[in-house]
Nucleic acid binder design. Structure first.
Lengths: 128, 128, 128, 128
DNA sequence: GTGGTCTAGACCACA
DNA sequence: GTGGTCTAGACCACA
């Protein structure tokens, strides 16, 4: 699976990395129990610092998405798709509320917004 | 319209403020051509720094959502709901892609995600 | 409140620091809404690196014990004593099970173990 | 007695193993003078490295809990329950202090903490 | 002035 | 070989 980061983005490098990995899982490119590159290897591959990769991995660990083993390396949790966090839906709703407000202010109403959402899901399923 | 900010939030104050204003517009509490409080007044009302309010207003101005006029003050643009930015839908799709990835990794599939989106729109329409 | 760390300890510096702060709260030396020293000040005071202090603070933030505000600094959460984590009691029981096993293997039975626990609480209440 | 280790745990394998053996003794599943499997056998049985088992055994030997004899193998010390280490109670108190601090910060007071401790002892006695 | 991010580089424990 | 911890030092956004 190809991981890409944009050094010029406003988004922190470690956040981009975490996003990409979550995206890879959502699209099915990364599956439960799949191994991830070691901290050092991924860092040198992406041309960024070890600690930045480590920070991304630790964030995903906290979210229960990956398993980090000090001597055996990193892999996708076998429980990635489990419905764990009770609080998550509340956070999600708040984030969607912000996106929806912004969309309305940009002339994008409910129909079109739902269209974009469905489009994203469709692309993910097709592995695009 | 009541604007509320949470100084304990992780979100920057100026971002909160911009979000609240966009939300107010989306819900219909703020309408095209409605005036907004002056930078000074809003700052003292919220107990925050003038620069913070100014930063929020400037962000909204750049988005074409409000009009800032030195002598006549600040007001909602008459073209708020216009479908201006050709680039916006691309940004929106990227943001939704991130939210969807995260949701899938937390056990929330398409049906439930769409449910949350529809719920947000419903609450907005009912002015909740 | 005096924070002390032991550079020669097996325990990581950032863990020691987090422990000391939790201990200070438990004894009542640090109270809800009390400010904590800035990352840089505490680091120079303890003669350790900024990042180490930052890591300790971030751990406590994740636990909901302190509030970190990028521009206003760090303080004890007003909800420190709230009964938040549903999973915490399970973790606690496991840790106690390990301690109890070890104690029994060292000739310390239930009575004496409970004595030590009560003693710890007593010392905390008296602010010792 | 069944020894189980969890390769996904945050805890080092050798620590888990030592904990399990102490726990087995505390519950009475392993008794003074009982033999333990050889390093090689236990390692292959658990599917882990010999060095890991060896490290766990050596830790327990240093604690005076097991006896390692090159020709006669490994067995539980006949003096396991003896009150040997004068320093142990100090270490125990420090560990309990940390647990208690953390518990208080999570809304668990003295009564509830003591309840958990008593519960652990009860489960051990009943061989659960 | 505050914490956040990133880099470069060292040393360590576990397996 | 693996991730974890710690340091030193730089630059940045927010207020």
């Amino acid at each position: 699976m190809l991981l890409q980061i944009d050094v010029n983005s406003e988004e922190a490098l470690y956040t981009q990395l975490a996003n990409q990995i979550r995206y890879g899982i959502a699209r099915g490119y990364l599956q439960p129990d799949d191994p991830l590159p070691s901290v050092r290897n991924l860092a040198s591959e992406l041309g960024i610092n070890m600690h930045t990769v480590s920070k991304a991995y630790n964030k995903l660990k906290e979210e229960g998405i990956i398993i980090i083993n000090r001597s055996k390396g990193v892999r996708i949790s076998s429980k990635v798709f489990a419905d764990r966090k009770t609080g998550y839906e509340t956070i999600l709703e708040e984030k969607i509320r912000q996106l929806v407000s912004q969309s309305i202010c940009n002339g994008i109403g409910e129909k079109r917004f739902l269209g974009v959402v469905e489009n994203v899901f469709k692309k993910m399923r097709s592995g695009e």
